[in-house]
Design a protein around this nucleic acid. Structure first.
Lengths: 365, 365
DNA sequence: GTTAGCACTTAACGCGTTTGAGTGCTAAAA
DNA sequence: TTTTAGCACTCAAACGCGTTAAGTGCTAAC
């Protein structure tokens, strides 16, 4: 009785696609008669019913209750996304929008990602997010120490991945600072800690630094402590979400309890972060439907995301969260478009995607 | 027939307070019989009914429909907040929590505010936010330029209010950079632009700087452009929200449409920002109920916030957003507690509030 | 293998009825 | 004059119930 994806008859595929399309469009269960009338299936409603019954037996469809139409199951969506979605042709207007909104001269990853998530949300009408994934090992490319007042200075860290982190350090019970002292500190840090990851900072190195700092040796331990902190925050990852309110536009999120779960999940962010930071990622768009993933995305929801690659390394991701019946074709195309754009923004030569550059329909591994 | 707040009879006050308390507790309209039985009002339900009718005529109460109990009106809440709330005595545990959660050695405003909003949300069970208000005029206390590669450097700005902003600058069609060049740039910027606000940067100053930069004069205009941008972003303000999901716990936000409005408003953030940045603020807790304010807080909602003062200047605010029937006593006490704590964290000597330090019940102006 | 037809199921809808909490008013009591 | 008991009235919410309509599964004919 088990049948493999590939072995679905053409007509079954046609019907399944029609059902998913229809359900995506209006969210209602879809019945045989409706299907025959509006989707031009070349056979009668009875035949369609038979096919639907079989599709249900195979696990691609399900019935909310006996006398209702059919709704795609998770497996149905999966199959749809993997093999049935048509490539969505972005309109000139949409391409223009992506370009316009993103091309403002931005060089910082943070800013770019935030804007990207806003664009994604606007274009797709779903809740979108952008993410800076957990970096496995950051090193600091350059330190700087800025004198603020006699007991305060600012430590600036430029990380290997381009992120910049600043920490204000306040001393107590120590002799007053001066620009000379902070300059010396910066020099020492740069000489000894450049391009080391957090766990490569060893005691001998610290002792060397204390020697270098002469009379202000006590600053070393303070600074190192703060640097430790900063570095662990650096590979913390961050999540920017836009268009939360759009979630409410879809009736499947109308239930307050469900909505609450979703909001909580978004705020928690840890799960999403972990998933998107998955080093296995090929760089393709991934689609997670319902309970498929370790991430507790809720029933009837889907998460679509695409990593952003810079110099062969994953530096972030943008994605969309919405009901399982989301408009995959459009979302996939939009994410491809935006990520392509972001990647080109990040590379020194700032070109943008051209209109009508078709890509093969991507699918999850 | 008009009567001033002060002229409400004691019994009316008692009844009004009882009604607000009861409504805060369970969200239902409250009736005369219930009031008499559970709140120990020393008279019969008929008398209470008469008083309630008068309170309604005076605008402190309203009736959802003829045969329902009474519900406080906006004016009722206002009166309650201004004169009837009892001071909420924080439990030792709550004070401990505030101290514990906040006292982690944090020196940066950003981080502190974010944590503060989380604490506020946890303690009150409402949605909380923390905000960095629009600064009227920022100046830069110190510049720094960090060489990244031949065409890229990072500009670090330390603002007068302690904020730190970094900008990655990517050059095109210019001779390659070097640390010597960026050092020179930093030196020049510090010499010429320190403690100036954005609109004090004039052409003569720029020309001086170009002279100082010698062969790399072209960097000046690039840098100034970026600095302009950074400074305007600096006084942009920022809003951190925690515990959005808690909104859903209150039935008055269950309606998807309403929820959508609220989420939109939060994301918009501009209104909230503007209001909280109000320079008129005395530093006391403010309570905005329903449609009272310019801010389009929704019907049946209330916004409670308290500015955070540092060196006599408002550097931020923390607040809570919830249904109009929120537990004002607790919220007010919590915000007082947290803000006191935050302020002491920001001042060099890091002391915390003590248990049982009573403050007079605050109220809006 | 396909289709027409029919009996069956069931959520949703409309609608009158009942219920009950709560009021306003009046007349008696304090 | 103020308070209270009592009662008639109101109205939203809950309930019951028949009707509707969409949709199915099955069977028998094509």
């Amino acid at each position: 009785m088990e049948e493999r994806h590939e072995e679905l008859s053409e007509r079954k595929k046609l019907i399944l696609k029609a059902i998913v399309d229809a359900h995506i469009a209006d969210g209602e269960p879809v019945g045989s008669k409706y299907l025959m009338e509006t989707k031009q299936i070349p056979c009668s409603s009875a035949t369609i019913r038979n096919e639907m019954a079989e599709l249900e037996a195979l696990g691609y469809l399900e019935q909310p209750h006996t006398s209702a139409g059919r709704v795609p199951s998770e497996r149905g969506y999966r199959f749809y996304v993997d093999t049935l979605v048509e490539h969505y042709a972005m309109t000139a207007r949409e391409i223009y929008q992506i370009n316009e909104l993103l091309k403002e001269k931005m060089a910082e990853l943070d800013h770019i990602l935030l804007t990207a998530s806003k664009v994604a949300s606007n274009l797709t009408n779903y809740t979108a997010f952008a993410i800076k994934p957990r970096a496995s090992s950051v090193t600091v490319r350059r330190f700087d120490a800025v004198y603020l007042d006699d007991s305060t200075f600012i430590l600036v860290l430029v990380a290997s991945n381009g992120q910049v982190k600043t920490k204000t350090v306040r001393l107590s019970d120590m002799p007053p600072l001066s620009t000379a002292v902070t300059d010396l500190l910066a020099l020492t840090l740069n000489e000894h800690l450049q391009n080391l990851s957090a766990n490569e900072i060893t005691l001998p190195i610290m002792m060397d630094m204390e020697k270098a700092m002469g009379s202000r040796a006590e600053l070393v331990s303070v600074a190192v402590k703060v640097i430790y902190e900063a570095m662990s925050e650096l590979d913390q990852g961050e999540l920017k979400v836009s268009g939360m309110d759009r979630l409410l536009e879809y009736p499947e999120f109308n239930d307050p309890d469900r909505m609450k779960e979703v909001l909580g999940a978004i705020e928690q962010k840890d799960d999403i972060l972990r998933m998107v930071s998955d080093p296995e990622g090929t760089g393709d768009v991934s689609v997670v439907i319902g309970s498929e993933s370790a991430v507790k995305v809720l029933d009837k929801s889907a998460l679509v995301y695409k990593p952003i690659i810079q110099n062969g390394k994953t530096v972030g991701a943008i994605g969309v969260l919405g009901p399982a019946r989301m408009d995959y074709a459009k979302v996939l195309a939009t994410l491809e478009g935006i990520s392509g754009n972001v990647e080109s923004l990040l590379s020194p030569d700032g070109r943008h995607i051209e209109e009508g550059s078709p890509k093969p329909p991507p699918h999850d591994s």
